[in-house]
Structure formats: structure tokens, C-alpha cells
């Protein structure tokens, strides 16, 4: 199976979204590949590789409408079994302010750091929000160089550490 399409669905979170989408796809002969689903700010977000016969958009549009989801579908040209293993993780936290992500990722990009996954959240309270970000990626520059590259970004707490994947 190589005709993977990328399906994204986003809408106000409620129980049963995944089950309804998965059932509609399964009942119509679609396969699911890699997926990432997550609640972000009260919305539920789905990003999923699907493959199968026929008009997936026509199939899912009524369901999306009924569940209040925005649907987007396109030929992604991706494939399974093309994972890259991260070798570096970067942890960032600090008082929330504009520009944290731009500054950190900008410095990383200059070092040729390829982000494989980024998760960020705002913790703390409404009065004192704290931005927390966890990045995993691949970079062939030494850890010390990377750490230096992002070391002078103000009041942020930054930690760059290697990811040694245990195979056993």
C-alpha cells in the first residue's frame, strides 16, 4: 500500500470522535497508518495517514460536519517504515513570553538540527504562565556546541541532552 493520504481533523473535543472516524474508515475499506491525535486547547486534533479505495473526502465530509470537525485531506506521498531516530532532546521552560519557540528553534536550525517532534504547553497559572517545550531531533554536531548555541536566550531554563536509544 503506497497511496497514503494525510487526513487532518480538528474540532471542539467531545467523546467518541476517534471511534466515529475510525469506524467510518474501517467500514469503507480504509487502512490507517501512523497517526498523532491530541487535545490542544480544548480542540481535538487528528493527523493520520490513511490509505484505501475511493473518495475518502466524500465519505468523511458528512461525519465531519455532524461532529463539528474541520477536515483536510491531501496526497501526502509519505510511506511507512521511514522512522528517524532522534539523538538529542532539548527541554525548555520559563516564564511565558513572545518569541521563545522562534528563538530556540531558530538557534537549533542554524546548527542543522532536524526537529522530529516538538511538544509545548503552557503551565502555571493565568497570572504567571510558564512555557514548557520538549523537542526531540537529530543533529550531528556535539551536544556542547548545541547547548552553547541556545545558551544565551534570556531567562529560559534550557537543557540539551543526548538520547541514547537502548536496543536490546
Amino acid at each position: 500500500m503506497s497511496d497514503w493520504r494525510m487526513l487532518t481533523l480538528v474540532g471542539a473535543d467531545r467523546p467518541g470522535i476517534v471511534a466515529a472516524v475510525a469506524k467510518a474508515l474501517y467500514d469503507n475499506g480504509f487502512s490507517l497508518g501512523e497517526a498523532s491525535m491530541m487535545r490542544l486547547g480544548g480542540n481535538f486534533t487528528i493527523m493520520m495517514m490513511i490509505s484505501g479505495p475511493g473518495d475518502a473526502e466524500g465519505l468523511l465530509a458528512p461525519l465531519a460536519q455532524e461532529m463539528g470537525l474541520r477536515l483536510h485531506l491531501f496526497e501526502a506521498g509519505g510511506r511507512l517504515h521511514s522512522h528517524l531516530a532522534p539523538n538529542v532532546q532539548v527541554r525548555v521552560h520559563g516564564a511565558d513570553r513572545a518569541g521563545i519557540v522562534a528563538q530556540v528553534t531558530g538557534a537549533l536550525a542554524e546548527m542543522g538540527f532536524n526537529i522530529l517532534e516538538l511538544e509545548s504547553d503552557v503551565a502555571g497559572t493565568e497570572q504567571r504562565p510558564v512555557y514548557i517545550m520538549h523537542i526531540e531531533g537529530f543533529c550531528d554536531r556535539p551536544i556542547e556546541e548545541l547547548a552553547r548555541a541556545i545558551s544565551n536566550l534570556g531567562e529560559l531554563s534550557l537543557d540539551v541532552s543526548p538520547i541514547e536509544t537502548l536496543i536490546g
Binding site: H83, A85, I163, T165, L166, G168
Partner: peptide, 13 residues
């Protein structure tokens, strides 16, 4: 927490 893979579980960590 640490990242693991396995000879018995190809292509997944």
C-alpha cells in the same frame, strides 16, 4: 524515562 527499541520489535522505539 528513556528511549528503547528491541531486536524483536523492528522499526519502533
Amino acid at each position: 524515562i528513556g528511549r528503547e527499541g528491541c531486536l524483536s520489535v523492528p522499526d519502533y522505539t
